[in-house]
């Protein structure tokens, strides 16, 4: 049997010529990126490089000035105002996990995960709860179902947020510095869940400062600086032998601290 080559899998995410500026402050210049099905792409780079902005443009939380975004066949052109139906479909295909979790604090953990399923997918409450419990068990958090998020640790809240996104059956998961707000020790439990997710073949884009995760789990590493992609390729190779001087400086700063 031939191992399927993930590098040539059908692209789930395609970002073309993305650009964005706030007045004269250019945050993204001509960013193009393709994420094949079943692959994990890690985006690294100094803060202010535009990594999070690229990720947030992918599901239009941030409106790019120009360029095109396509997720799972739903295409949105930045110049025009997106059609709400198409935008909803695109967002449904992409699950997003934020640095600060963004759970709904007035709902129990179970409601947090079930409500979007009911509203977005039209599932019945029973169906939604069943799916939620299945995911909570997978995250090792079944006993937290009836608690409020504030009663959970940061790592638990982030795993709940992952479960909430997964419950909608996304084609790709977008992670925006998922461990940056967590203690290193707690971050590990989130990284474990992400590794498990990657091993099941979930397509993932991860903006991160966790170099070990980027090196060991990612299939593709994207290095950004000053609003553009300066280097991308096989993670091992980039981490061992960066081609760009800016990459070298960045890696020295994060690896030798």
């Amino acid at each position: 049997m031939i191992e399927p080559n993930i590098r040539t899998g059908t692209p789930v995410v395609r970002v073309t010529n993305l650009a964005k500026a706030y007045g004269s402050n250019v945050v993204l210049r001509d960013v193009s990126l393709t994420v094949p099905e079943g692959s994990v792409t890690a985006m690294i780079g100094p803060s202010g490089a535009g990594k999070s902005t690229v990720l947030r443009c992918m599901n239009l939380l941030e409106q790019p000035d120009s360029g095109e975004i396509e997720i799972d066949g739903h295409r949105i052109n930045a110049g025009r105002k997106p059609n709400p139906k198409n935008l909803a479909a695109l967002r449904r295909s992409a699950g997003m996990v934020f640095q600060h979790f963004n759970l709904f604090p007035h709902m129990t953990v179970l409601r947090n995960i079930s409500l979007p399923q009911e509203r977005v997918l039209g599932r019945s409450r029973d169906e939604a709860n069943e799916k939620s419990m299945e995911l909570l068990k997978r995250m090792g958090l079944a006993e937290k179902a009836d608690q409020y998020p504030s009663r959970c640790s940061g790592g638990q809240q982030q795993r709940i947020a992952i479960a909430r996104a997964l419950a909608l059956g996304p084609r790709v998961m977008l992670f925006d510095e998922p461990t940056s707000a967590l203690d290193p020790e707690v971050g590990v439990e989130v990284l474990e869940v992400m590794k498990e997710l990657a091993s099941t073949g979930m397509t993932m884009v991860v903006v991160t400062h966790e170099m070990a995760f980027a090196g060991n789990v990612a299939d593709e590493l994207v290095v950004m600086a000053d609003g553009g992609i300066i280097e991308k390729g096989e993670p091992g190779q980039i981490l061992q032998d960066p081609q760009h001087d800016r990459t070298r400086r960045f890696l020295r700063a994060v690896l030798e601290r």
Partner: peptide, 24 residues
């Protein structure tokens, strides 16, 4: 952030108001 969270989940603007913003 909670409004963004609900948008990212694909919830409509109305649902976001009804379930997230107005109750809180």
């Amino acid at each position: 952030g909670e409004v963004e969270g609900s948008h990212a989940l694909g919830m409509s603007y109305r649902d976001c108001l009804r379930f997230v913003v107005i109750p809180q």
